[in-house]
């Protein structure tokens, strides 16, 4: 009787929507501009250090003084500089836009009528934000290593523990660093996605998300609030130094993973509860 089969059609790919989401996200000029801006961070740092040669004063962000000895440290310096503001800002834009952006365009109703499935759409949207977080961290580190190699001498890297590692081991540490920083941002992305389900004004969701990242960092800086510090999603954002010791200490990695997972579960559940029951009237 029906010409369109209700069961899953042969040839239907369940991950087609994720592919479409990623293609849409990364072809968008706004996304490219944000990644470009993040790429500028290591470039500016490298140029500034090269021009002034003031890297050895012992002040400034972590690894800054190491750059003149080994250009490979530019990526790590840039990551340290970007964590408090630039990374949360760009990820807040992407995560805050997930649902609210579709709602404001009106495309949300067409995705749901397709039917995308509310749970599936939410999952795909969150995964898109997570992939952006990985891409953002990777761009900073990779561009940093590239520009560092271009402007400074490179060689075996001396770790915080005093050991020296070669190129292969360094590449592994760089990957672990990208993994750590992007994982640190997953809980934050879940918060942003939840806020995005609350409104049809994407700018509002973006701003609220970014403000939360700032508020969490401020709270983390107040000693009077030390009781809540371990529970703040920003608390372990800078604890990646352990990855530059030999042997690698996995404690902070594991602790942060549990913390982020907790945020993903809580805010993911809130987002699911909200998005699967709310009326789509935009």
């Amino acid at each position: 009787m029906s010409r369109a089969e209700p069961a899953r059609a042969p040839g239907a790919r369940p991950f087609a929507l994720l592919g479409s989401e990623l293609a849409t996200l990364f072809r968008r000029r706004r996304t490219i501009a944000m990644l470009g801006a993040l790429a500028l961070v290591p470039i500016l740092i490298a140029i500034a250090v090269r021009v002034t040669s003031a890297g050895s004063s012992g002040r400034g962000p972590a690894f800054l003084s190491d750059i003149t000895q080994n250009g490979l440290f530019v990526g790590f310096t840039a990551l340290t500089v970007s964590i408090p503001l630039f990374l949360p800002l760009t990820i807040g834009v992407v995560a805050g836009d997930t649902i609210a952006g579709e709602a404001s365009l009106g495309t949300l109703r067409y995705l749901l009528v397709a039917p995308a499935g509310r749970l599936r759409l939410l999952g795909v949207k969150y995964l898109g934000a997570a992939v952006f977080a990985i891409a953002a961290s990777a761009v900073i580190v990779v561009v940093g290593i590239g520009i560092g190699a271009l402007l400074f001498p490179i060689g075996p890297v001396t770790l915080l523990s005093g050991d020296t590692i070669g190129a292969g081991d360094f590449a592994l540490r760089a990957l672990l660093m990208i993994g750590y920083v992007s994982m640190s941002l997953l809980g934050f992305a879940a918060i942003g996605t939840f806020i995005s389900t609350l409104t049809t004004v994407p700018v509002g969701a973006m701003a609220a998300t970014v403000v939360l990242a700032a508020a969490s960092q401020i709270m983390d800086a107040l000693p009077q609030l030390s009781a809540v510090h371990p529970w703040l999603f920003t608390h372990d954002w800078f604890a990646f130094g352990d990855l530059l010791r030999n042997p690698i200490s996995w404690d902070s990695y594991a602790q942060n993973a549990v913390l982020q997972l907790g945020y993903i579960v809580v805010f993911g559940s809130l987002a699911i509860g909200r998005f699967t029951t709310t009326d789509v009237l935009s």
Partner: peptide, 10 residues
Amino acid sequence: LDAADLHAPS
């Protein structure tokens, strides 16, 4: 929008 339809053959 077609990719959003889980049942649409790719």
